[in-house]
């Protein structure tokens, strides 16, 4: 069965998702799972995710020890929490909206829009970001469920545009930032290899 839901749901990072009408039950489950992961709710992993859960996206690919670029199991949820809190510390406001979703069998496809504003200074290798900069990016997420829990989450977004937009359209500045980010990612990768987690830059 396939159901499709146009959604306009706002979630300010750090606060509970505003309940919206017209949302499919699987999408609701998935959004609740990730909201609880963000909030660091005790027991979130056992409640929403299978023991063999894996997530794969641009951020995990840079720090993963796995050939497929994924992070796995409970530590991956901790990393998700840490990297999102890193974002929340770098920006005064981050609004995340689920703008569209589709449910098919045990799969939820959703388009999320993040709007980050009021930067606090440095982010992703860029420094002195103007305080009035507002950056919007759309990402696509696929959550797959087995026995009522998420076992796989896979996402993508235009990472280069995100960096270029933060740099105010200056691709050379974005290139320099990427070089700096490389050093930060190496540090995260090293920590992952030692079984520690640390916020991704």
């Amino acid at each position: 069965m396939v159901s499709e839901k146009p959604i306009k749901e706002n979630s300010t990072v750090g606060k509970t998702i505003v309940k919206a009408k017209n949302i499919g039950s699987l999408t609701r489950f998935v959004l609740d799972a990730w909201d609880n992961a963000y909030n660091g709710t005790p027991g979130v992993f056992q409640k929403y995710f299978t023991p063999d859960f894996k997530m794969t996206g641009p951020e995990t690919k840079m720090v993963s020890q796995e050939p497929d670029g994924s992070l796995r199991g409970k530590p991956s949820i901790q990393s998700y929490h840490d990297m999102n809190h890193g974002d929340a510390q770098a920006w005064g406001k981050v609004v995340s909206e689920c703008v569209w979703s589709l449910e098919a069998d045990n799969t939820v496809v959703r388009i999320m829009r993040w709007t980050s504003s009021k930067p606090r200074g440095s982010y992703a290798g860029l420094e002195n970001i103007p305080k009035d900069r507002v950056v919007t990016i759309n990402g696509v997420f696929i959550d797959k469920l087995r026995n009522g829990k998420i076992y796989d989450m896979f996402w993508a977004y235009d990472t280069m545009s995100f960096l270029v937009d933060i740099a105010g359209g200056d691709m050379k500045a974005a290139g320099k930032a990427l070089g700096k980010m490389g050093e930060m990612m190496e540090a995260v990768k090293k920590a992952q290899a030692e079984g520690k987690t640390m916020p991704m830059p």
Partner: peptide
Amino acid sequence: FFAYDTLGYFIDMAQGDM
């Protein structure tokens, strides 16, 4: 509507050398 990890593509072409 089309999305992919554009930086990841660059990093792969650079064989992981950021």
